[in-house]
Design a protein around this nucleic acid. Structure first.
Lengths: 242, 242
DNA sequence: CGGACTCTTGAACCATGTCAAGGCGTGTGG
DNA sequence: CCACACGCCTTGACATGGTTCAAGAGTCCG
């Protein structure tokens, strides 16, 4: 289910949002953020497992995650899915859809999720009065390009153990930026999703989680993860086999 | 070697450029393109094998390829390269560098190459007077995100033969958009570069070129390629193993 | 409490990598 | 203009990381 709601005047806006240091308002002054408030007039609530948008849907907006989390996935010619990202609060979904007028990917909620709707036409209308908005939006798009390139590198160059260690560290770092613990968290996705994202099978991910556990690097119980030795994980992820 | 030259008043500008249907001017009216001419005041010529920019260089501009071709590559922790793209005329280099002020990648000319310099500060200055510029730039960035996601899918999901067939078709399609033959062209990169880009070894690429040759799909002689059976290649690239 | 997921673990297999040898082409210096 | 050397490509034999297939154990939820 997908429910659209208007942002009540007394509700939280960009200017008062806890995520403003990660999301679109990053780098803006108090006044600039107040201007930005005009832009966000609608939110959408998506239930766990439901889609924020589907491949082929008309593109009219991008979506800033306010709470919850979303996975985005492409489909290949044979209908198999490739997950291209797990989005957390403060991150933007739909950045790959701004060429054609059709979404090239699905966006599916991994838990009950709320997003802020950023309409493209309204962004263009506001932009001349808020030039920093374009710059920040450009930065967010560039970041996605960089992230995706890193992913290509990971898939092209790294061993499975390096990818999995890197994945855990990446989650840790992003969750800690949101104010959560960097060493203890709950994965919102299945082993299969992690494997798909990392270009591995769910069995390989499971085996590596078990091995890392045996080696004392992490503790895993179902989707709860504890990172016990960040340095060792970093070495595993970063250092090459030399 | 890397030589900066000013654009002479009587030289080709965006408004008269042959690439205008692919590059930044796409979708602009005659008048809008004339405005865009102000933006491009410098070009850079880069010799084969030399760098347009290096990892760590300060970011002040992005670069539209005017002639020649460029490969962009990241470096992993161990110093190994991962090629993230082969850029042809009309395509833009440096889109991944707009967050930090440092280039996250190297851009290396695969042949003698000339690029138009698009300074970010000048783009921001021009934007309020040319709103379509922002939109087109956004489209180009979105396209790069989409392309990179496709690459992730290819690396995550496809067999080597599908990746290589897909690569040939992709080159064919882009070269034909530039007015070249879609069935006969010269690859500007080595087998090693192709392999690196596709997450394979040069031996695997070579073996597949040979096999496709034996099967009558293509003819290869060194870096010259002829596509003899586009449909069969498409089937190979697109259809899954079912 | 039962049924359906989801995860773990083992064993066999295979796609692709690694290592090694040789061929082709091109440019350079004698 | 030839010969030699170097880089790039091809091909073969073998090694291996990761997949596939299969069985069983938790865990969640109605």
């Amino acid at each position: 289910m997908r429910k659209t709601i208007s942002v009540a005047p007394d509700s939280t806006h960009c200017s008062t949002c806890a995520l403003s240091e990660l999301c679109l308002p990053l780098g803006m002054s108090r006044e600039q953020r107040v201007k930005l408030d005009q832009l966000i007039t609608k939110r959408i609530q998506v239930k766990k497992m439901d889609a924020l948008f589907h491949l082929g849907d008309k593109v009219e907006a991008v979506y800033a995650i306010r709470s919850g989390s979303i996975k985005t996935q492409l489909e290949d010619a044979a209908g198999r899915a490739q997950i291209t990202g797990f989005l957390l609060p403060g991150e933007i979904a739909g950045l790959d859809g701004l060429i054609e007028l059709q979404q090239p990917s699905h966006a599916i909620a991994m838990e009950n999720t709320e997003v802020c709707v950023i309409r493209l036409d309204e962004m263009d209308a506001l932009a001349p009065h808020l030039p920093i908005l374009q710059q920040q939006f450009r930065r967010l798009m560039s970041k996605e390009i960089q992230r995706s390139h890193q992913m290509v590198m990971s898939l092209g160059l790294l061993l499975s153990e390096q990818r999995v260690a890197g994945f855990l560290l990446n989650m840790s770092q992003r969750l800690s930026a949101l104010g959560y613990s960097s060493t203890q968290f709950v994965l919102r996705m299945s082993r299969e999703d992690i494997g798909n994202y990392l270009g591995l099978t769910l069995e390989t991910v499971s085996r590596l989680f078990s091995r890392f556990g045996r080696e004392g690097l992490i503790r895993v119980h179902q989707r709860e993860v504890q990172l016990l030795n960040l340095d060792a994980l970093r070495e595993l992820a970063g250092a090459s086999c030399d």
